[in-house]
Design a protein around this nucleic acid. Structure first.
Lengths: 187, 187
DNA sequence: GTAGCAAATGTCACAAATGTCGTGTATTAT
DNA sequence: ATAATACACGACATTTGTGACATTTGCTAC
């Protein structure tokens, strides 16, 4: 049972501490999106849909269902800067992945589904503010924690925060500050 | 694992997150159409039949199984140009997706796994040559057909071809030429 | 407070579907 | 060739869907 892609009504009943019969009613009514197996119509619900359902109803989400990976995607066109960030985070046990341009950022984000992303606001051909806006508009990235790391002024950092960044750090940064911010995001 | 034409019960069990025994029962009962190998009657199911089965039961279809032969990702920072290409291809029955920057290109490439990509060589912050080199170095993109569409000179187009592009088209292009090149790639 | 009421949820029993296990055999990898 | 893996199948265990009915919950009015 290492990787769980879908849940049965029984699983959900247990997670929600609710009767199995009730889970079936939720699904039938459409408030919880699921699908039926061909046999007798046994229900299955994808983990994603279940988590979505929990959030929509302000119900607690079991931590094991969240992509709890300690993977960080470091987006910075400056390789040295990226490696510096990587070195700090790796020492603290984070799995790190770096992207030096928009294409790599996009593909690695989709492929590895990291839970945290550090983002340089100013990269050639990739406007960090636009990217923030885009990510925050997409359902699938609502849980992605974004730490903006930029040499821009405080005003720009504030704007990034307003656009949905979870935290902002000015360059150059202190290692400890970086670590504490990233660690905060894992919770 | 580049091309999958048929699936075993084990494959399907994994896709559906269901027990292998159950898959065999589905096949025996006829709700999932399959055929048996001569040996001991091991089951095989064509991808088409499996996808059909999934759709009939409103079950999620893994994107990599969808007949993606006619999906095109159009990468061009010029929106008008992208739409022009899209219009031509759509009229010919292609499913089109556009990306105007590197990030979108990367994420859409990973998400939709198109079989064909048109690529503008000169985009701000995204070097088309570098991208070609990168894609051709990755196992998962060996089957991706890449059509370079660029206003650069013939020498540059040749260089792109040398780097792994399947075809190159100079801007401005003739519709018919575009169509014939893309159609060639679907085979 | 509580009485009343409607909606949601829980309980129960049974049949059907799915999961588990072990064994033997084909298929694949070395 | 041989070893390792994947598969089919039977028998049995467990889970699940359903309907009917009981109980709880949330709310309103008194």
């Amino acid at each position: 049972m290492a990787k769980v892609k879908s849940l049965t009504t029984g699983d959900i009943a247990e997670y929600c501490d609710v009767n199995l019969r009730t889970v079936i009613r939720w699904i039938d009514k459409g408030s919880l999106k699921g699908y039926k197996l061909p046999g007798r119509g046994n229900n299955r619900v994808t983990v994603d849909n279940f988590v979505l359902f929990l959030k929509q109803n302000n119900m607690p989400v079991p931590p094991e269902l969240l992509p709890k990976s300690k993977t960080v995607l470091i987006v910075d066109d400056d390789k040295d800067m990226g490696n510096a960030i990587k070195r700090v985070l790796k020492k603290d046990g984070f799995e790190c992945d770096t992207a030096t341009n928009g294409f790599l950022a996009g593909s690695k984000l989709m492929q590895h589904k990291p839970s945290i992303m550090t983002l340089d606001l100013t990269m050639p051909g990739l406007n960090g503010f636009e990217l923030l806006k885009h990510l925050r508009a997409e359902e699938q990235f609502q849980d992605l924690k974004i730490l903006v790391i930029s040499a821009l002024d405080q005003e720009s950092l504030d704007e990034a925060l307003a656009l949905g960044a979870n935290a902002a750090l000015s360059k150059p940064f202190e290692k400890d500050k970086l670590l504490s911010l990233v660690n905060e995001m894992t919770q």
